[in-house]
Every structure is written in structure tokens, then in C-alpha cells.
Nucleic acid binder design. Structure first.
Lengths: 155, 155
DNA sequence: ATTGAGAATGCAACTCGGTTGCATTTGAGT
DNA sequence: ACTCAAATGCAACCGAGTTGCATTCTCAAT
């Protein structure tokens, strides 16, 4: 049968595609169409989207179930390709992990529109470890500034 | 009918009760039994509990619906008596707001047992505002360190 | 090109934290 | 005691994220 369906993500290769594929294969993961689509959609967004927003973006090019998205996000976070951050609304956001692994960055989230944006790497590296109770090990530092973004502030 | 039920929170006044009552009245809120019970339970806990854990604690002395707890927490956060923080698991935790309002504190959360503990006030006051995009206003700073606590680290 | 095994995906149903609407109860002020 | 607004309980709901299982896809070995 001739394949006139849109079951396959037969998008003409976008410029970001080879990069996404490379990142996946470098991490030892299969470079499947959905995973590439997720990475491309994420790279194209100027902020760190919630799962639903990311799903909407991916679906403009690729058919994908929400469960697949959640599993893909788990996988990519596990592989260190993405970072996961908790929003002030209790939903998670994801963004590309910066190249310099050791340069953690914080986020700003608007309490009105909910958009979360990445900040440049933190200069004053939190030496908060000095404040910790004895015997603890820190694996991850989360810094989030909540407030009102420029656009919401005007209206 | 004779009232043999435990509908009323007829706990013999605990030492923390007058304080809780004072805080509520100072904020212009009715000092109802549930609100006092929530504040007492929270003050008695050594960490910042999730709603379910707090509800369990309150129910050891007072009958309370979960909706009432959530509404009470909203109210107390709004009044500045409590602080709300996002856990790494997406659930909120609440703790007493420290006396010095201008001294924000961070939190440590164990990724295994989920317990969130308050840290001393941050010494290196985040001057991250310098990193922010133009036009934004910051209302709240959230700093969370995720890792393994002493107890979980041993086992 | 064919095929077979394991990984990836979709679908449905579910869990869990939190919320909403509405009826009932409580409690402060008369 | 009476009244009326505020507080509470109950049931039903919502959205984010998860689980189980059947189907489809990938890739490697023929």
C-alpha cells in the first residue's frame, strides 16, 4: 500500500536533527523519531516547558502519546541530556542540560503565566553544603526565583 | 443523642497553643481549633511535612478533612505564617515562616525517604537578580538541595 | 530482503496531590 | 437564645504523572 498516512515522522530533516541524533547515540540510546522530535522541539523552545506544552509542540510534527513523552523525558534526564526542574505550580519543566556539566544554572518562573526561563550559570556557587546536617550527600541543587516576567508586568 | 463522639478537639491545652492562637489573631484570622491544631502539629514536627503527613499528625488530636487542611494551609501561607516549598517529588511542603522575614532559608530533601528539612538562613544572599532578564520582579527565592540524608545513607 | 528478539510505542486504566461546589456546622456579636 | 458570616465536611472532580499490557518498530544476524 502507498503510505499516505502520517504515522511516520517524515519531516524533512530539520537542521537540529543530526545534533539530536548524535546526542542520543552518544548516550547509547536508540535514535527513534519521537526522541529526536522531543529534543528538537525542546531546542526550538526559548524556555523550559511543562510536559503538556512540550507535547503540544512535538505533536506539530510527530504523533506521540503522553506516556511515551513521560518515558522519553525520564530516559533523557537519566542519560544527562536533559535536566528536570520543579515548577512553583508543582509541575516539572525540562530543559537541555548545558554543555558545562559543572555549571548549574537557576531558573526564573513567572507566577502569572507560568513560563520558566533558564538563567545563566550561578556565579556565587552555593557553598550551602556547609550549612547541611552531618552525613548528608548532595546530588542536585535547585534554585528558582519566582516573580513576574516583563510581559506580565506590563499588563 | 448523647455526644460520645470525638467531634471536638478537646485536647488539654498544649504548651504551644497560646502561641498559635496569638499568631492567628495577630494576622486577623479566627483562631479555630483546626488552625491551632495545624500550627501545633507543624511546630512539633522536626521537618517540613507534605500535606498527607501533616494531616496524619493533626488527626492524632483533631478530626479534620483534607480539604480543610488545604484551605488552612493556603490561608496561613497567604498570611505569612507559613512558607510553602516545592519538593523534588512535585508535592508541596510547609514550614513555619522564620521570625526574620528577610532571612530566606533553603531546604534539603532526601531523594530516598522524601523528608525535607529546613536549612539555616542563606549566608551568601543570592544576588542572582543581576542575572535576570530585564523587566522582571522577583517575589520569592526557592533553594533546594537534593541528596541522601544521613539515615538513608547508612542503609 | 527476511526474520526474530528486544526495545519502543500506544492505549486504557489507574494513582495521587490538590481543587471546586455545595450543604451543614460553628462561633462571635447582638 | 438568635443571627449571619465564616469555617468545615463531603463528594465529585481535575491535571500531572504512572502502570500493565498489547502492538509496532529497530536493528542486527542471517
Amino acid at each position: 500500500m502507498t503510505d499516505t498516512t502520517q504515522h511516520r515522522a517524515s519531516i524533512p530533516h530539520s537542521p537540529a536533527e543530526p545534533d539530536a541524533r548524535a546526542r542520543l547515540e552518544h548516550a547509547g540510546l536508540e535514535a527513534t523519531p519521537r526522541r529526536i522530535a522531543v529534543l528538537e522541539a525542546l531546542a526550538a523552545l526559548p524556555h523550559a516547558p511543562a510536559a503538556q506544552e512540550l507535547l503540544d509542540a512535538v505533536r506539530r510534527t510527530t504523533r506521540m502519546d503522553k506516556v511515551t513523552l513521560y518515558r522519553t523525558l525520564d530516559l533523557l534526564v537519566e542519560a544527562g541530556i536533559l535536566q528536570r526542574h520543579s515548577g512553583a505550580d508543582g509541575a516539572f519543566r525540562h530543559c537541555m542540560a548545558p554543555a558545562g556539566e559543572n555549571a548549574p544554572h537557576g531558573h526564573f518562573q513567572c507566577t502569572r503565566c507560568g513560563v520558566m526561563t533558564c538563567l545563566p550559570p550561578l556565579p556565587t556557587a552555593l557553598d550551602a553544603t556547609a550549612l547541611l546536617p552531618a552525613g548528608v550527600t548532595v546530588e542536585h541543587v535547585e534554585v528558582r526565583l519566582d516573580g513576574v516576567c516583563g510581559r506580565c508586568g506590563k499588563s
